Amino acid sequence: MERRNFLRVAVVGTAAAAFGGASWAEAFAAGAQPGPSPYGPPQAVDASGLMIPAGFTSRVVARSGQKVASTSYTWHPAPDGGACFADGGGWIYVSNSEVSSTGGVGAIRFSSTGDITGAYRTLSGTNVNCAGGATPWGTWLSCEEVDRGRVFETDPWGVTAAVARPAMGRFKHEACAADADHGYVYLTEDVTDGCFYRFKPTTWGDLSTGTLEVMVGATSQTSGPVTWKVVPDPDGSPTATRSQVSGAKRFNGGEGCYYAGGTCWFTTKGDNRVWAYDAGASTISLTYDDSLVTSGTAPLTGVDNITRSTSGDLFVAEDGGNMEICLITPNGVVAPFLRVPNQTSSEITGPAFSPAGDRLYFSSQRGTSGSSSGGITYEVTGPFRR
């Protein structure tokens, strides 16, 4: 059967309600295709070095190796996955550091008006902290992207010491997403024959114990029902977690992961796909595949971190490509939202919205220098759809 015939997004019920009645299943029946952005095209390069739509503004909030404004904290190298947490009337943006041995997590605190009021470390001395995910109980899960890497649960306020969560599996972690509706945390694995996992805590809100499972299905399968099997040894030694379960479905380079409204979206960089897992029906489908674009050039390549706006638009960052953050709307349009020009040796990381949904944070991991010491973290403010 042609791959195009598999292109569906099975998101119904609670998801439709979450998107104001728009059904992703109907919108993507023909596949996410290029079209005009609801925000218009990116404009000429602004003072921050970004190309953003008309009506939006931007600023640089941090640079690797330099003190964050009005603080004593030196922003970490290679900023990667990130998330925002409400902090009274303000918020906190946390960011991983994807470097060996001295990785970890840093945080920037903002007032209700967006002024920077603090910056600090919440995790130190870990290894290649790539992406992760926020929990409903207000912690940040920071994932190590190394063989037998760990997940660390960290406190965005920097008060409680970070704790390793080995029950969530030791493998080459990328990202994770908490599903409070069904009581799971989903996890991606960044290898060419990686798997998609879910962790069921013994007690929701406590990640110290639980059951790790892996998705089971044909590797060629792009839609339809899937099942899950328990990973016998989450420690991953001597046998890697992805090699312990017969029939585990393979994904080509798992990257970003985000849960909302009954669906977990995740990306795979090896084939430039955005997937959707319907948690209620236990089915998978494709939201986007660059090889299935039917007209013009695929706008989204090098898929990586993913997040979602309050309106239901997905925002997908590029690792390479032409250094864009592209959006995928609930009506099946994929289009560039912004571009980071003149930084071809970098990648875009850590997209996350402020709690109010009017500010988008992200980083260029290696900036203009092409080195982990040249990271730049940005804020874009404007009339995001609600």
Rank of each mutant, 00 (worst) to 15 (best):
A167E: 11
M168P: 12
M168L: 11
M168A: 04
H173M: 09
A175C: 10
C176R: 05
A177G: 02
A177T: 02
A178S: 15
D179H: 05
D181M: 13
H182P: 07
H182W: 08
G183I: 02
G183C: 05
G183S: 06
Y184S: 00
V185S: 04
Y186N: 01
Y186M: 08
L187E: 05
L187V: 10
T188S: 14
T188G: 11
E189H: 04
E189Y: 01
D190P: 07
V191W: 05
V191Q: 12
T192H: 11
T192E: 14
T192W: 12
T192C: 03
F196P: 00
Y197I: 00
R198W: 08
R198P: 05
R198T: 02
F199M: 04
F199E: 04
K200Y: 00
K200G: 00
P201E: 09
P201S: 03
T203N: 11
W204V: 09
W204F: 15
W204K: 07
G205K: 08
G205Y: 07
D206A: 12
D206Q: 11
D206I: 06
D206Y: 08
L207Y: 15
S208P: 13
T209A: 15
L212T: 03
E213V: 06
M215G: 03
V216G: 06
V216I: 15
G217I: 02
G217L: 05
A218T: 14
T219W: 05
T219R: 06
S220A: 15
Q221H: 08
Q221A: 14
T222A: 12
T222C: 12
S223Q: 14
P225K: 12
T227Y: 09
T227K: 09
W228M: 03
K229Q: 15
K229S: 15
V230I: 15
P232G: 05
P232A: 02
P234H: 11
P234D: 13
D235A: 14
G236R: 07
T239F: 13
A240P: 14
